[in-house]
């Protein structure tokens, strides 16, 4: 693949990397760092949701449930067993992935509306469990006191990640790793099978793609990263509650994927960053925020289904005058 990355792309990547590295110095205040960290978490969520929605063509409306399951797993493991983020990250991911696998046994045999509706219902079941299993989850009160990790290995400098700045770098490393892996999955033969599933399920089967299996792979891996993001979120905010299951979160993630451009990786990344910053910028109209968002989503879906990436491609085509097809 390396040969395909052009010089301008390398340049853009390097500049972005540089900016990301010095960002805490540039923005300084805790408030902006907070937004940066949250947007990094949402980058994982949006790109992992894109595995399903963009690459596999499965519109899942329970992504936030996997995020929440991961967050709860991390919170409980920390509170009961003092496990640090280094472990809960994976535990959260694996927990969410296992639930996705179980759910997949049930819902991946149906497609279309039934699949979509079942995923909505599943997220609600998750919320009810978190809300009602008070012995474990403390219900509506939620779980608090989850601490950021401390990096402490003999012979290496000790790093405490409780400062915003340190946690920013931690989240940056985790997010970059996740996005890279997601990129590699979607651009490997596994991702190509997802595309085959999305484009034409019967033909995919006839071509030798076990569609049930690849749908499960997509569902489970997508949930893994969402669960992992949940752990990163839980150790950052220190607090998880049943609200994490709310449909609004799933909608937010979907807006990010569609705003950026589904079926690409850079799209959801841009979408996540933009759509975390934008709401903060629009704070003046707090009451009308969700109204504005939903209007944005509506306009996007109806008039620009390819998102920003599609828009850029269209502009570039206009200037270059060549018919390049979007790399899926």
């Amino acid at each position: 693949m390396k040969s395909r990355v052009s010089l301008p792309s390398w340049l853009a990547l390097s500049v972005t990397a540089l900016i990301l590295l010095v960002l805490p110095r540039l923005i300084g205040t805790d408030y902006y760092l907070h937004i940066a960290i949250i947007s990094l978490v949402f980058v994982i969520l949006a790109t992992s949701l894109d595995i399903l929605v963009g690459y596999s063509g499965l519109l899942s409306l329970c992504h936030t449930a996997f995020f929440a399951f991961g967050a709860y797993a991390a919170a409980l493991l920390f509170l009961h067993f003092q496990m640090s983020l280094w472990l809960t990250m994976f535990a959260g991911g694996v927990f969410a992935a296992s639930i996705a696998w179980l759910l997949g046994l049930l819902v991946l045999s149906v497609r279309g509306h039934r699949f979509i509706i079942t995923t909505v219902i599943f997220a609600e079941i998750g919320r009810l469990i978190a809300y009602n299993w008070t012995d474990l989850t403390q219900g509506q009160i939620g779980l608090s006191g989850i601490r950021p990790p401390v990096f402490d290995l003999p012979g290496l400098p000790r790093i405490d990640f409780s400062s915003r700045e340190a946690y920013y770098y931690l989240a940056l490393v985790v997010t970059t790793t996740c996005v890279t892996i997601i990129w590699r999955i979607t651009h490997s033969p596994i991702g190509w099978r997802m595309l085959a599933l999305r484009e034409n399920e019967a033909l995919a089967e006839a071509s030798g793609v076990d569609t049930r299996r690849i749908a499960t792979t997509a569902f489970v891996s997508s949930a893994f990263f969402a669960g992992l993001a949940g752990a990163v979120y839980a150790h950052y905010t220190g607090f998880v509650s049943p609200d994490l299951f709310y449909f609004t979160y799933t909608t937010t993630m979907l807006i990010m994927v569609f705003l950026g451009g589904k079926g690409t990786i850079i799209g959801p990344v841009m979408g996540a960053v933009l759509f975390t910053i934008l709401p903060e910028a629009l704070r003046v109209t707090a009451n009308y925020r969700l109204m504005t968002f939903s209007a944005i989503l509506l306009v996007l879906v109806v008039f620009a289904p390819e998102g920003l990436v599609g828009l850029f491609a269209r502009i570039r085509r206009r200037f270059a005058g060549q018919g390049s097809v979007q790399d899926a």
Partner: peptide
């Protein structure tokens, strides 16, 4: 429109109307 477009559009509409009512 495709399934996902119509679903997302009506979801957006639903949020819009709910928040309109809220306001």
């Amino acid at each position: 429109a495709s399934l996902s477009s119509s679903v997302l559009a009506t979801i957006a509409l639903s949020i819009f109307l709910e928040n309109l009512a809220l306001n």
